[in-house]
Amino acid sequence: MSATQAIAEAFTTARAAGRSLDAYPGTPPATLAEAYAIQAAAIARWPDAVKGWKVARVNPAFATQFPEERLIGPAFAPNVHHVEAGGTAACPVFEGGFAAVEAEVVIVVAQDGPAGKADWTADTVAPFVKSMHIGVEVASSPLATLNDVGPGAVISDFGNNWGVVVGAEIANWRELETIDVETFIDGASVGTGKVNIKAGPLGALAFTLNKRAQQGTVLKAGDVISTGMITGVHDIRIGQQSRHVFAGAGEVSVRITKAVGR
Rank of each mutant, 00 (worst) to 15 (best):
I134R: 02
R212V: 12
W162I: 15
R19P: 10
N59H: 13
V83C: 02
T178P: 07
A126G: 10
F246Q: 00
A122I: 08
N147P: 14
S242D: 06
S131M: 04
G228Q: 00
M132C: 02
I7F: 00
A85P: 11
V245I: 11
D180A: 14
I170M: 01
V154Y: 03
G52K: 08
G159W: 05
G73H: 06
A115Q: 12
V233Q: 10
A103P: 12
T192M: 11
S131C: 10
V245R: 05
T88F: 02
E69V: 15
R19I: 15
A63W: 03
G73C: 07
E251H: 12
G18N: 05
A249G: 04
L21W: 04
A206T: 05
R243L: 11
G203Y: 00
W46E: 13
I230L: 01
C91M: 15
G97H: 08
D186C: 07
T257P: 11
N79I: 11
G73K: 00
A6H: 11
V149K: 09
G216M: 08
F98Y: 12
A139Y: 02
V218S: 13
H81L: 14
A204C: 05
T192K: 15
S226G: 09
W162G: 15
T124W: 01
A206D: 03
L209P: 09
H82R: 14
F11Y: 08
I170F: 01
N172Q: 12
I179T: 01
A171P: 06
A75W: 06
F76D: 00
V164H: 04
T64R: 14
D180G: 15
R262D: 14
R174G: 11
F11D: 00
T124M: 01
P74E: 00
A115W: 03
A42S: 10
V254D: 05
L202W: 04
P78D: 07
G150C: 05
V109L: 01
A249L: 05
W46R: 13
V80D: 03
P47D: 05
D157C: 11
K194N: 14
L32S: 05
L143S: 01
Q215P: 12
V136Y: 06
A3M: 11
A23Q: 13
S20L: 09
R174Y: 07
R70S: 12
S131W: 02
Q240G: 08
I230R: 00
N160L: 07
K130R: 14
A6F: 10
P78Y: 02
G26V: 01
M132I: 07
E34H: 09
G187C: 04
A188W: 09
A89H: 03
A168Y: 01
T231C: 09
A249Q: 15
T13C: 10
R70G: 10
R174E: 13
V83E: 04
C91H: 08
G248Q: 02
Y24I: 10
R262S: 15
P29R: 03
T31K: 00
V129A: 02
T64P: 11
L205Q: 07
Y24Q: 06
R57M: 15
H244A: 07
F184Q: 14
R57Y: 14
E137N: 01
I38Y: 07
G52Q: 03
A171K: 13
M132V: 02
K117S: 12
P74V: 04
A40Y: 10
A3S: 14
W53E: 03
K198V: 15
A8T: 08
D112R: 04
I107Q: 01
T192C: 11
K194M: 13
